[in-house]
Design a binder for these strands. Structure first.
Length: 508
RNA sequence: GACCCGUUAGCUCAGUCGGUAGAGCACCUGACUUUUAAUCAGGGUGUCGCUGGUUCGAUCCCAGCACGGGUCACCA
């Protein structure tokens, strides 16, 4: 049976419903209960017919038995069975017979327990809420093709119920973080997505055009510089869940748009921000998963505080068998060559160290760990360490071998910041497309004075990946970036009624 | 961006050493008043991703393209 034929059969039923006096697209339905609450009644539900309820959802299965039948309704909380009996429904039994799997339906009737023990609603009245004219994926194997699952997340969400749990966890994690920060006196703010100068991270931007201003804008790669402007304005503690956009490759841990939580706290350095971050992440994981021992891809990640601190210089020194604390470029490049690593041209000792760290140390950071002692060259917005002028006051949080957070004692010396920007500009001249852009307005703000400030960015999508045992970022983003289905029509021609096609009606 | 793999019925998948294809579920008809992957009897599934090439003949071989997956590169 071709798709167009299957859809024609379903469309034909629209008229059948009208023929028995039912409008197949309702305006409202007064729902009294959801599936989970009814199932939770447990032993209170017996074979005696009890409380009369009204439930609504999508019909997911249908089993006819002549003058009776069963169906499963799926609502936002889960599935519950309904029982349809000719004696009870009278002329409305015809409605049951007309129902297709996929239809939205409202059922009213008493709760009872069937002979086989399943809590069930007996249908005394059936209301069609919306006719489904497209056949559903198969009930047993469901929808497994990742392309279709992501393109048609709507179908994924009603076929693969574990997907719903992933996004519920995501919501719990985000609201847990929001509560945590609100309780500590942080102000939630919103800053521009469209920025005339982009900054705060190393990345290539998306570019867009403002017609009225005849100006080129960039979609933000970070909101860091705006949040710090608010610190300069005296707000002291601010945060934003920022949708950021980076025009880079896509893989298991990168989507071109992603959610970065950034929070800034005046009068704090990275040591205090480590404490805040540890507490925040633990709180969020408890809210999302209820545990700090998080199962992820076959192992258990331990987030129990206090988290280990790993010095980048110590860890790399240990791996290569000699001290690299002097950040001697030739020595670092020698070790890179030994391990067949190729740091990017012109990134110097810092780039070589980073390369060694990524290859040799990072994969071992499975349990939560703070990495510290980053070289100065790669951190233009951070302050130099009080104890070692070769490194900056910065930490990154790692777990499951990937970066979850990045934090600095923020640079608040306006002249030093200008010099760091100028060094970036020089790198840019040399062809480093990701070097940061000098932001004069940001420097003006800094010149008014910024209090000592600690700032942290947490990759929310990645944290959700851990909290939901998801292998790829696409599993925790509802509509991950994909190429359009070019050249492949959404429907074949036969799916569109002739009259609609002739009138040139839009097909979506 | 590079390499490898995939694309067959609405869904999940088999298959054709080159002769235009099958299964299960779904769907349709009938039977069945407590089933739950309901059961029983019967029925039709399709531009084999697209475009070319080779061939008497291509879903199968070859090339290009599209989309997806994986690995790498990029990505702090």
């Amino acid at each position: 049976m071709s798709l167009s034929h299957l859809m024609a059969q379903r469309r034909a039923k629209i008229e059948s419903w009208r023929a028995i006096g039912c409008e197949p697209y309702a305006y409202a339905y007064d729902v009294t209960h959801h599936a989970d609450a009814l199932l939770a009644k447990g032993d209170a539900v017996t074979s005696e017919f009890g409380e009369v309820v009204r439930i609504a959802g999508r019909l997911m299965t249908k089993r006819g038995h002549g003058k009776a039948g069963f169906g499963t309704l799926l609502d936002k909380t889960g599935r519950i069975q309904a029982y349809f009996k000719s004696d009870v429904l009278g002329e409305q039994f015809a409605r049951f017979e007309l129902l297709d799997v996929g239809d939205w339906v409202g059922i009213e009737g008493p709760l009872f327990r069937t002979r086989t023990g399943e809590i069930t609603v007996r249908a005394d009245a059936i209301m069609l809420l919306a006719k489904s004219i497209r056949p559903l994926p198969e009930k047993w194997h469901g929808l497994t093709d990742p392309e279709v699952r992501f393109r048609q997340r709507y179908a994924d969400l009603f076929v693969n119920l574990d997907v719903r749990e992933t996004f519920r966890r995501r919501a719990r994690l985000v609201s847990g973080i929001r509560r945590f920060l609100d309780d500590r006196g942080y102000l939630e703010v919103e800053t521009p997505v469209l920025q005339p100068v982009y900054g705060g991270a190393f990345a290539r931007p998306f570019v867009t055009q403002h017609n009225a201003l005849d100006l080129q804008f960039y979609l933000r790669i970070s909101n860091e510089l705006y949040l710090k402007r608010l610190i300069m304005g005296g707000l002291e503690r601010v945060y934003e869940f920022s949708r950021d956009f980076r025009n880079e490759g896509m893989d298991r841990t990168h989507n071109p748009e992603f959610t970065l939580l950034e929070y800034y706290q005046a009068f704090a350095d990275i040591h205090q921000m480590m404490d805040v971050t540890q507490a925040l992440v633990c709180d969020a994981l408890m809210a999302a998963c209820g545990s700090l021992k998080v199962p992820y891809q076959g192992r258990t990640l331990d987030f129990t505080p206090p988290w280990k601190q790993v010095s980048m210089l110590d860890a790399v020194s240990e791996k290569v068998g000699e001290s690299v604390h002097d950040l001697d470029e030739a020595k670092l490049l020698k070790h890179c060559a030994k391990h067949h690593l190729h740091p990017r041209q012109g990134t110097g000792a810092g780039g070589a160290l980073d390369e060694l760290f990524s290859a040799l140390v990072q994969p071992e950071l499975q349990d939560a760990a703070f990495v510290i002692d980053f070289p100065v060259a790669t951190s233009p917005l951070a302050r130099v360490s009080r104890t070692n002028p070769a490194v900056v006051e910065r930490f990154e949080l790692f777990a499951a071998g990937f970066e979850l957070a990045n934090a600095f004692s923020e640079q608040n010396d306006a002249d030093a910041q200008r010099h760091a920007f100028e060094a970036q500009a020089a790198a840019r001249e040399k062809g480093d497309e990701e070097a940061q852009v000098l932001d004069e307005d940001y420097l003006r703000a800094l010149e008014y004075g910024m209090p000592p400030t600690g700032g942290v960015g947490i990759g929310i999508d990645r944290l959700v990946m851990l909290a939901t045992d998801s292998r790829t970022i696409r599993d925790v983003v509802l509509f991950p970036a994909m190429r359009p289905e070019e050249g492949r029509p959404v429907d074949d021609e036969a799916d569109v009624p002739e009259d609609a096609a002739e009138e040139g009606a839009p097909r979506v």
